Amino acid sequence: MIDRHLRPAEIELLLDGEEGFGVAQLRAHAASCSVCQAEMASAQEIMLALDALPDFAPSPAFADRVMSQVQVFEPWHAAATRTVEQFIPASRPARLAAGFAAAVGAGLATAGATWAVARADMGLLLAQLGLERSREQVVAAGSDLASTVLGQPGLDALRGSSPEVMAVALGGFVAVAGMGVVGIRALASSSRTR
């Protein structure tokens, strides 16, 4: 026996005439409880009033009006398929020719990619040659700059010395050039203040 009042869903089960596990207990409680009997009678009246209402059907254009206001998301693969279908010919011979052309194009693209991968060593060789040429240009420009600043005897002395002596000479040059720039700026700013 149930020691509580029936819930709306349980009352609906009884009114619909459902059968199953636990329904016998619900019926026994409803037969002995005046509150649940009143609830069932009220629910029965509502069901009868709803059943008496006429059935209405929406107008045929109702669905079209609703769907025109709904934003439908189309997945990318569906859009791509629809786009590709526009370019597929309608006749069978034209479809066969288009398929053959697509197969030949795919084969040529595969062959070209395979050739490019097989010749990757050629690309690396060309890149190394380009880098070597660029390094030679930078060294030649640096040599010309050193020859201009130090003269040919100073350049010859640097070429015959160790890397440490070259680093000290380069550091000294940068320091002297920096002091020259600072000195020129100091002179320029002092001449403006007068």
Rank of each mutant, 00 (worst) to 15 (best):
E18P: 00
E18Y: 04
E18R: 13
E19R: 15
E19P: 00
E19C: 02
E19M: 07
E19V: 07
G20L: 08
G20F: 06
G20P: 10
G20D: 10
G20V: 06
F21Q: 09
G22T: 04
G22F: 05
V23G: 07
V23M: 04
V23K: 06
V23Q: 07
A24R: 15
Q25E: 13
Q25C: 01
L26H: 05
L26I: 03
A28P: 02
A28I: 03
H29P: 05
H29V: 05
H29F: 01
A30K: 08
A30D: 05
A30G: 07
A31F: 02
A31D: 12
A31L: 11
A31Y: 02
A31R: 14
S32I: 03
C33K: 10
C33Y: 07
C33V: 03
C33E: 07
V35M: 10
V35H: 13
V35Y: 11
V35P: 01
V35L: 12
Q37T: 05
Q37N: 07
A38I: 01
E39F: 03
E39I: 00
M40T: 07
M40K: 13
M40G: 08
A41M: 09
A41Y: 03
S42K: 13
S42Q: 14
S42E: 14
S42R: 14
S42W: 06
A43M: 11
A43G: 07
Q44R: 15
E45D: 11
E45T: 11
E45K: 15
E45P: 00
I46H: 07
I46G: 01
I46T: 12
I46R: 15
L48D: 14
L48G: 09
L50F: 01
L50G: 06
L50N: 14
L50E: 15
D51Y: 06
D51A: 15
D51I: 00
D51E: 15
D51W: 05
D51K: 15
A52C: 03
A52M: 11
A52N: 13
L53K: 14
L53N: 06
D55R: 13
D55S: 13
D55V: 13
F56H: 13
F56P: 02
F56L: 15
A57H: 12
A57L: 15
P58G: 11
P58K: 02
S59H: 08
S59T: 12
S59M: 07
S59N: 06
S59G: 13
S59R: 04
P60E: 10
P60M: 03
P60Y: 00
A61I: 12
A61P: 00
F62P: 00
D64C: 05
D64I: 09
D64K: 04
R65M: 12
V66A: 11
V66K: 01
V66Y: 10
M67A: 12
M67Y: 06
M67G: 00
S68K: 06
S68D: 13
S68Q: 12
Q69D: 10
Q69M: 12
V70P: 01
V70I: 15
V70M: 07
V70N: 01
Q71A: 11
Q71V: 10
Q71C: 04
Q71F: 04
Q71D: 10
Q71W: 02
V72R: 03
V72T: 11
V72E: 02
V72C: 01
F73Q: 08
F73G: 04
F73Y: 08
E74T: 12
E74I: 09
P75L: 02
P75A: 05
P75M: 04
P75F: 03
W76H: 09
W76D: 14
W76Y: 05
H77A: 04
H77F: 07
H77L: 04
